[in-house]
Amino acid sequence: MVDFDDADVSTVGRGSTIFSPSQLEGWTVRTPSPQARRWSVLSGLAHGLVWAFPFVAFAFVWRRVDGDGFWPALIFAIGIVFLIVMLLKGILAPRTWWFAYTDRELIVEHGILFKARDQLSYERVQYLERRSGPIMRPLGLASLAFDTAAGRAAIPAAVQTDIDIIEDHVRIAMQRVEAL
């Protein structure tokens, strides 16, 4: 098993106690592992670069054609702001989310400005999607998206063993709904 940060679970949610996973008895609680944190920062950086690239490139071309001026600098700054925001999000996100599951239900807490604790039963899942990008794969991580009739919930990153367990639970629940 990969090491989880179970020890400092209680410090994750501040403010209201319901946003702390420490009181969940009978639930398997997972906070972001070191790999997940590393992935989050790296993917923040990658997203930031992708968003910043067109602005920065455009600014450089403009500067080359038109010389120094206010507008190229502004566009360059917008690109850099994107980079910083995405990177910050990547750094902050793993401090904000955790998830917990049983064999019937799932809780995901997420959100940087607002913290939201979503609870949903596997029976409501209509479509399940596992994704693992080029940064995630070497770290042994994958993300899970649960599509319901009223929107989509997601686990941003989890290790393979958890993913397998949750996918099994969801499949069993889907069959149970079918049998009704």
Binding site: G15, I18, F19, L120, A150
Partner: peptide
Amino acid sequence: LVWTRASQLRLFAGKNV
């Protein structure tokens, strides 16, 4: 009901959600 949620502002939050 498909899902439920409790949420609050991360900073300056009290007991109300």
